[in-house]
Structure formats: structure tokens, C-alpha cells
Simulated scan of single mutants.
Amino acid sequence: MLKRPEIGEIASHFQAYIQEVPDEDLEALLEKQVDEVIGLMGNLTEEQAAYRYAEGKWSLKQVLGHITDTERIFSYRLLCIARGDKTPLPGFEEGLYAVNSPADRMTLNELLQDFAAVRISTLSLFRQLQDEEWERVGTFSGNPGSAKVLAYLIAGHSIHHLRIIRERYLQN
């Protein structure tokens, strides 16, 4: 089982995501999240999926697209670091990605399939890694971090946004 990163291994602005992750098998948690996302959103209408809880906020579709895009980026970073690439990896502007995302043009079913495909790919990468690869450190968003940190960020970021979906989008 992958051990949770220590506080000193994580840039302070990422700590909240790591703290979201429960003490359980990370791979099993990531597998369960696919069913959780589909269960949470799979029966929504297109109108419900286009909902924005306030002016200027992302649609529910954009939130799902954001979760998926962020996982793609974090998985790429994880791959680079696990393979020993020391090239500093840039940050990304999440708002720019959301504005330029095709999420609002896609059907909810397409977005759910995309999320599941990305998660399957992420899990495939996880299953390839040896213990020492998880501990390799690189630089992303201007901060040092290990492949293990990125694995926990993937899970914690999803947990964070799923809570927002429940609290702000599905309470109506």
C-alpha cells in the first residue's frame, strides 16, 4: 500500500488536497471514485449538468472536465517524475483550461466516459510503478514533489471537487 506523504514532502498549497484522502488503499479509492462519479452524475439531465450555482461559476460539466483535465496533468507529472526526468514541470492556469474546455459542448455521458478513460489510464500507470519510483522527486509548479505526492493529489483533488458538487450543485 502506498504510504501517505509527510507534511514536509508537500508544498503548503497542496496540503489540503492530501489531507482530504482517507487512510485506505489509494488504488482501491481511485477505482471506487469512478463508480462514485457515475453514481453521482450519471442520471442527471443535460439541463442539470449545465447548472451553475452562481453567476460566473463553472457549470457542473465544466467541473467534471476540470477534474479530468487536472488528472491528466497530474498523471503526466507523475509519469515524468517516476521515470526520473528532472525537467521542471510547469504549473497550469485552471481557469484558462476551463474556459477553453469543450465540456459545455460535450454530453454528460461523453464527459463521464472521458473521466473513466483517464482514470483507467492513471490506474494502469500506478500499477507499473515500483516502490523506489514512487519516492522519486521532481519539480512541478515550482515546488519539489514526489510521484507519491502526485498520486495523493489526484485522489484529493477529486474528493475536494466531488464534495463541492454535492454541496453546491446537487442540493437544489
Rank of each mutant, 00 (worst) to 15 (best):
K3E: 15
K3Q: 15
R4M: 13
P5T: 01
E6S: 12
I7H: 14
A11R: 10
S12H: 11
H13P: 12
H13S: 14
F14I: 03
F14R: 00
Q15E: 12
Y17P: 14
Y17G: 10
I18C: 00
I18P: 00
I18T: 00
E20V: 06
V21F: 09
V21Y: 12
E24C: 09
D25R: 05
L26C: 03
A28Q: 09
A28N: 09
K32V: 00
Q33N: 00
Q33K: 02
V34A: 11
V34P: 12
V34S: 11
D35S: 09
E36H: 04
E36P: 02
E36I: 03
V37C: 10
G39S: 11
G39N: 08
G39T: 04
M41F: 11
G42C: 05
N43I: 10
N43V: 13
L44V: 01
T45Y: 07
T45W: 09
R52C: 09
Y53G: 03
A54C: 08
A54D: 09
A54H: 03
E55W: 02
K57D: 11
L60M: 15
Q62Y: 04
Q62F: 04
V63R: 13
V63W: 12
V63P: 14
V63S: 13
L64T: 05
G65Y: 03
T68Q: 04
T68D: 06
D69R: 00
E71Q: 11
E71K: 07
R72M: 11
L79N: 12
C80I: 09
I81N: 03
A82V: 07
A82Q: 09
R83C: 08
G84L: 12
K86G: 08
T87P: 11
T87V: 13
T87A: 14
T87K: 14
P88L: 14
L89A: 08
G95H: 15
L96K: 14
L96M: 13
Y97E: 04
A98T: 13
V99T: 11
V99N: 07
S101M: 05
P102V: 12
P102S: 08
A103I: 08
A103L: 10
R105P: 02
M106F: 07
N109S: 13
L111V: 02
L112I: 01
Q113Y: 05
Q113V: 06
A117D: 13
A117S: 12
V118K: 10
V118E: 10
R119S: 06
R119Y: 01
R119G: 07
R119W: 04
I120D: 13
S121R: 02
S121A: 15
T122D: 07
L123C: 06
L125I: 14
Q128T: 15
Q128C: 12
Q130N: 08
D131K: 12
D131Q: 13
E132M: 10
E132N: 10
E135C: 11
E135A: 14
E135S: 11
V137E: 14
V137C: 09
G138A: 02
S141A: 13
N143V: 06
S146E: 02
A147P: 01
A147M: 02
A147V: 03
V149L: 12
L150N: 06
Y152D: 05
L153I: 04
L153N: 02
G156E: 04
I159A: 01
H160N: 00
H161L: 02
L162C: 03
L162E: 02
L162T: 03
R163F: 06
I164W: 07
I165C: 05
R166K: 15
E167G: 06
L170Y: 08
Q171C: 10
